[in-house]
Amino acid sequence: MNRIEIHYFAVLRERAGTGRETVETVAATAADLYEELAARHDFGLPRGMLRVAVNDEFAEWSQPLAAGDRVVFIPPVAGG
């Protein structure tokens, strides 16, 4: 189990009801983690539409996760 700090933006924040949470997870990659959280929070957005950043750097979905990582899920935003 890894302890991961998660930040949500925009529509994900609305769905999750919070901008930030810390989870204990067995998810091995950023993709696994998103699927796990999408199921829990009922995120409607497919992963392909989002970007993920691990420790303040944009990452591939296949990026392995380590304990203490900070993972940010970012949907595209259009308002202006």
Binding site: F9, V11, P76, V77, A78, G79
Partner: peptide, 29 residues
């Protein structure tokens, strides 16, 4: 771009290693 209480800013420069909007969002929403 903004959404409710949040926003994003991105600068593009015409340099080889700089991402455009499509680099970041390959599946144009």
């Amino acid at each position: 771009s903004v959404h409710q209480y949040e926003g994003q800013v991105q600068v593009y420069r015409p340099l080889p290693h700089w991402p455009c909007l499509r680099c970041l969002w390959p599946e144009a929403p």
